[in-house]
Amino acid sequence: MSMYTEEIDNMSDKSRAQLFDFVEATDGQAEDIAYSNYSYWRSTWKSFLKNRVAVFLLVMVCIIVAFTMFQPYLPAQKSPTEIYLDDQTGLQARNIAPNAEFWFGTNSIGQDLWSRIWAGTRTSLMIGCVVALVEAFVGITIGTLWGFSRKLEMPITQLYNVVDNIPTTIVLILMSYILRPSISTIIIAMCITGWVEMARFIRNQIVILRDREYNLASKCLGTSDYRIIIKNLLPYLISVIMLRMSLAIPFAIGAEVFLTYIGLGLPISEPSLGNLINEGRVLMMSPDLRYQLIFPSIVLSIMTIAFYIIGNAFADAADPKNHV
């Protein structure tokens, strides 16, 4: 009997030694098992890459943006504001059709259209980006406070009712009529009304999300409000925020065109897409000069369509429900 027990003990000792190797482990390694290596931004990027059209447009927009930055430093470029004179007659080189010297021709007072288009794209893009950033910042801040704080709900709702009731166009027109037309005027006028939409959307989403169980649980565990907003609520809204921001850029460019159209845009000395289209519009009655309208319109249309499609694709990709 005792012999058998000894035998069994030996066996189990042996097998323990052979079958299992004890591994040195640190606490950090133990944590690894608890999390998958899922990364939100990497997955977003991956599903964005699947949309070929959007990737193509993104590359194109990057090239255009880079080109507008570097264009003045390239060789054989003309100044966007200088008025060129004809060598033989000494008069202004007006309305010259596209040729080897003036790639896109000249406008009605003899400025080079090629460089004006790129300078104009730079101005318009700058306006668009600033407006989109300000709108996002103000909209998110006010929207979160509005949705999260019960004390601030009433006053902000009242403010919203007033601001939302004034047509955006009217505010744009009034602001630019009162202030002098300049880049900052246009930016201010667009920001005054732009944040409203974003704030309302963020507020509605936060009201829906703030009392869900996971937030209740967080609260019971003693998470601060700030952390709940930053970590639990806002990540939910990234796709919407991105969509709104990417739409804000074409909208801002469109609004700039509109303001120039009704005579409240930037001065002629400040080339912008709005200015160029407006100059071209005056001349469109004569078919030979239509190129002055067509070139800026093409650039403008490409930019707006690209931003629209990229924004939509990115919003889809940023939605975790679409991640693998």
Partner: peptide, 10 residues
């Protein structure tokens, strides 16, 4: 939505 109104009106 994407093409500015000013352009297609014209």
């Amino acid at each position: 939505v994407a093409v500015p109104a000013a352009v297609y009106y014209l």
